[in-house]
Amino acid sequence: MPERRPIVEGWFTTPTDGTPPALIGTRCTESGTYFFPPERVASRAPGHLDSPLEEVELSNRGRLWSYTDAQYQPPDPYVPVTDPHEPFCIAAVELTEERIVVMGQVVAGVGVDDLQVGMEMELVVDTLDTSTDADGVEVEHLIWKWRPVAEEATS
């Protein structure tokens, strides 16, 4: 079994108790604005350079701002996951509460025809790739991805 490891430390939670994962951001306590990836140097809200920054978990749902797909294999440092390349979707989602648009891959099995600007999306943590690290350990890298919120049963 490969070791499961977030591709970046401190950017998203990886709960094991069944609760939904979330992106980790920071909040400028003076202006109330949020930052993702978490800004830890200083608030980028003009005039609030000295404001404290507090770490917060961000909304794990939002509205689809736009989307596309990668029909060709992206160049290095992208790590291919299949050979040959299989197209995957990329979504940009505006988080409900923080109103930050965050890009992410869309989970496998969802194509552009399944998506529409404005639809509700939710965050999941999924496999990015599996590769061998500098110490020879096989690592399954984890990343946040987007997936459409399952439609409420209406019929």
């Binding site: 736009s66 992206p74 440092p77 992208y78 940009a92 890009m103 891959q105």
Partner: peptide, 20 residues
Amino acid sequence: LRFRLLGATNPTYFALYARR
């Protein structure tokens, strides 16, 4: 990071604008 984490090339961004 945009290449490593997302596989987001320059056309990815152009396409996000086009899709809107």
